[in-house]
Nucleic acid binder design. Structure first.
Length: 479
RNA sequence: GGCGACGUAGCCAAGUGGUAAGGCAGAGGUCUGCAAAACCUUCAUCGUGGGUUCGAUUCCCACCGUCGCCUCCA
């Protein structure tokens, strides 16, 4: 089976076929670094991470570019108010973004182009648009002339006259004068002394949309495979990107557009402007694990369905991760048995379950990245395997197959490294705790269960949970 | 007003023209010194009303409800 994804432009599933042999070039819209990104933004970044990971399984090479928008009106205003340079203003937010990204185990993109470092390319692109008759100057600013691009509106399904109607009442929100309300700014003039760049059009700074066109085409070429973002980027951002890029190159800009749905709170889009949003550190402070948050945002719901953030689903995600981790722990402790008839039968059953899980997982992922369904297949087989392991010992080949399966699943899911990191941070036992643990082992040996239970309670008070297993005691820091 | 999406058990959620994966929670059980883990059993007529069909949760229509976008929000 080949990977198919829902393409926003054609509104149907399309097979992913790289323009270059075995190489996928993808561009994902990154954050505007004027503040710390919230977990709604991270839902999209996690979806993109899952996509990236699956593409890397399916193709030899993936080149992933994510931009950092480090100049816009808000950043300029914030910088002016606090007396910062643009760099000083954005540096902490970029650092925070990378920190949160690592917390959630998102694979770093290959390039993080910053808008401020590509101004020359943007200017060049704007000049090219002027030569094509698709841009005009007005009071030091430059605007894209929408009538010059007849295909405008194809991505979003919003026709040009609907824009004129502008029933949202937001068409006057822009501070700049335009020939036509539908036109959008490529270059914005600034007053002398304000943050900006000198250009052939005068002093100013680039508009939002032009950066993505300039940076993606510089790093990935004038035509590339996949462009992602949240659904709110479909219009106007991606619509405008297509217009700018294709009006300049007369080539197809992007092969496939893939958008993820929003994260909600109380049934409404998580958004900074409503004040209802959470950031990664806040969620962790409230006691959630990074692995649970990653699972919730990436694997609990298909990426094209809205996901409502609340405690119960987060707890369910925590337990789902715990189930996977317990299973992995169990596998680690199992020793392969020698060969006999029982083992042979058990191994057949295990290998069948592994095969089913792998097929179910792969098919679901290939079908528009359906990670929730893929995990369903994994959990179903996991129960089958547990049942077999409960009944009879398994041989080395079967155990190895199960371990490989888990590795493959987590290569996409990406929760085990987060759990391991957490365990590492929790640290080992101190001398006193170690002593208590040994005393308890001795008590159990002597079948002094009263003492054993007292010691377990004592350790529990210190935040250490003890489980008794056939192989002896197992401890962990309680959540 | 225009365009679009969604509505499946207590919660989350996948899915198919032939009577519903999976996770969490709940109940009962097996195992265990007791627990934990694991396993077993149990828990839904798929928003409402029509239509198409031998048969619809799955296709069509209407309605109700929720949400998103309509110029700079992932």
């Amino acid at each position: 089976m080949t990977l198919r994804l829902f393409d926003t432009l054609t509104r149907r599933l399309q097979p992913v076929e790289p323009l270059r042999d075995q190489e996928i070039r993808m561009y994902t819209c990154g954050p505007t670094v004027y503040n710390r990104v919230h977990i709604g933004n991270f839902r999209t970044f996690l979806f993109e991470d899952v996509l990236r990971r699956w593409l890397e399984r399916r193709f030899e090479r993936v080149v992933h570019v994510m931009n950092l928008t480090d100049v816009d009106d808000r950043i300029i205003n914030n910088a002016r108010e606090s007396g910062h340079s643009l760099d000083e203003e954005t540096a902490p937010w970029i650092a925070a973004f990378f920190e949160d990204r690592d917390t959630l185990g998102i694979r770093p993109a290959h390039h993080y182009p910053r808008a401020t470092e590509y101004v020359a390319q943007m200017v060049e692109l704007i000049e090219r648009l002027e030569r094509e008759g698709a841009a005009y100057r007005r009071e030091g600013s430059v605007y894209f002339h929408i009538p010059a691009f007849p295909a405008y509106g194809r991505l979003s399904g919003i026709s040009a006259d609907q824009l004129i109607a502008g029933a949202s009442g937001r068409v006057d929100a822009d501070d700049y004068t335009k020939e036509d309300v539908r036109d959008f700014a490529l270059w914005k003039a600034v007053a002398p002394g304000q943050a900006g760049w000198d250009s052939p059009f005068g002093r100013g700074h680039p508009g939002w949309h032009i950066e993505c066109s300039a940076m993606s085409m510089t790093l990935l070429g004038e035509s590339f495979d996949i462009h992602c973002g949240g659904v709110d980027n479909i219009f106007p951002h991606h619509e405008n990107e297509i217009a700018q890029s294709e009006a300049a190159t007369h080539k197809q800009f992007v092969r496939m557009w893939v958008h993820s749905e929003h994260l909600r709170v109380d049934g409404e889009k998580m958004a900074r402007r409503t004040g209802r949003f959470l950031r990664v550190p806040e969620v962790l402070e409230q006691g959630a694990s990074a692995a649970a948050l990653r699972y919730l945002l990436a694997a609990s719901t298909h990426y094209r369905k809205p996901l409502n953030y609340s405690d119960e689903p987060l707890a369910a995600s925590r337990e789902a991760v715990e189930r996977l981790v317990s299973f992995r722990d169990r596998l680690r402790e199992l020793q392969p048995s020698g060969e006999d008839e029982d083992t042979e039968l058990a191994d057949d059953a295990v290998l069948t379950a592994v095969r089913q899980a792998r097929t179910g997982f792969d098919d679901a992922m290939d079908d528009d990245l359906n990670l929730p369904e893929a995990m369903g297949a994994v959990f179903a087989s996991l129960r089958d395997i547990n049942r077999v392991l409960d009944g009879a010992p398994s041989g080395g080949e079967a155990l190895h197959a199960v371990r490989s399966l888990l590795d493959e699943v987590d290569d996409v899911l990406g929760v085990f490294p987060l759990v391991d990191r957490e365990r590492e941070l929790a640290g080992g036992l101190d001398e006193e705790e170690e002593s208590l643990l040994q005393q308890r082992a001795a008590a159990r040996q002597a079948r002094d269960f009263a003492l054993s239970d007292r010691l377990r309670e004592e350790l529990a008070r210190r935040g250490i949970d003890i489980d008794d297993t056939p192989g002896g005691q197992r401890w962990k820091r309680s959540a």
